[in-house]
Design a protein around this nucleic acid. Structure first.
Lengths: 190, 190
DNA sequence: TGACGTTTTTAACATATGTAAAAGGAAATC
DNA sequence: GATTTCCTTTTACATATGTTAAAAACGTCA
């Protein structure tokens, strides 16, 4: 039994170690190098991933960065998993990383055959909703300079890990604007 | 038995009429007048609503409009229901409306005691994720003029139902900018 | 019809932000 | 040590968008 699975799958007050151990043949570990792609545009990626270590990000074909996910978080290509469409983004490692994955089919098998896993999945989806809502509201009510402040407050080390051009892209502004924000000559919204 | 419940609660390929009928004592119908509040800032609204008829919208204390929901859709105060926080928005009727509601507690009771309802809730949450992702991606990749075009394409009658000032607020732009978009003298992003 | 209030558009101006290009700085390579 | 390359900041300029105010359009009601 691979203990690594026990720690990265959130129990959410529902599962116990042996529930995960019992299902461990449905989970797979992958070791990934920096810049390696986990998901490519035009494919359909029916997997949910749990990030054991490293840093992954999503970006469009035009190199616009959509999100970053840090160690301990889960991620997936939403359009594939929840819309069953071909995805239109890359999911890529910003650093050497390791992930545990489970296919949507296998997860739904657990959900449909096991009440515990059904409750777990519902609570897991609630967490996804929380994260997505947080991102959504960030976009809706905060300007780029607020979002930059909060990013470096939450992940101060990101400056060392990611070039500012990528952070600007993530924030949805030009690198010039980010420089102005960092230099403090930027009018703030609120 | 109130048949109205049977039609507004989505079955999602899991429930049958009698499942909903069996739980119908947990659902409540409300008739609401135009401008009436369903949710107020500073309260905690632990209800999920299904909009039978009418039109509801969310707006902040500063009158910024966050979203509209049309007949047949469900809605809730996300911060209350999924974060258990006090909400910071109004949810208000743009027209005379009627809704069916269920409390989060009662819903979780169904989920925890009935496998069918657990699967149903998971699929329902997947639908919420789809809708939220759609809103999120709209904000992320589309400019106001695109979002305006798609809004009137999807709901052409909205122009008759809602003043343009509210639509501008919903789009996150000034009414002056919306006038410029409508007059066609507006540079588009793509 | 005329007067009034509301909604929408237009005009004038200030400013924030993007683009393009140059300059500065840091790290790696020869 | 010098050169190269990459990353970041700065400058100059063009433009989209907000604010404010005025004008126009529209509906209601006497």
């Amino acid at each position: 039994m691979k203990k690594v699975y026990l720690n990265i799958i959130p129990k959410l007050g529902v599962l116990q170690d042996f529930d995960i151990a019992e299902a461990s043949n449905l989970f797979f570990l992958k070791i990934l190098k920096k810049d390696q792609c986990i998901v490519r545009p035009g494919t359909n990626s029916q997997y949910i991933y749990f990030l054991l270590s490293g840093l992954v990000y999503s970006h469009t074909i035009e190199e616009k960065i959509n999100w970053y996910e840090f160690e301990g978080q889960s991620f997936a290509d939403i359009e594939s998993v929840f819309f069953n469409k071909q995805c239109d983004q890359y999911i890529r490692c910003a650093e050497d990383s390791s992930v545990v994955s489970i296919s949507k089919d296998n997860l739904l098998y657990l959900v449909k055959t096991n009440h515990k896993w059904a409750v777990w999945y519902a609570l897991f989806l609630e967490e996804i909703i929380q994260r997505m809502y947080y991102y959504y509201k960030n976009l809706l009510v905060k300007d780029a300079s607020q979002r930059y402040s909060e990013l470096i407050e939450l992940h101060p080390e990101i400056i060392q890990r990611i070039p500012l051009g990528h952070i600007a892209s993530y924030l949805g502004i030009s690198q010039v604007s980010l420089s102005r924000i960092r230099a403090g000559r930027q009018t703030k919204k609120s």
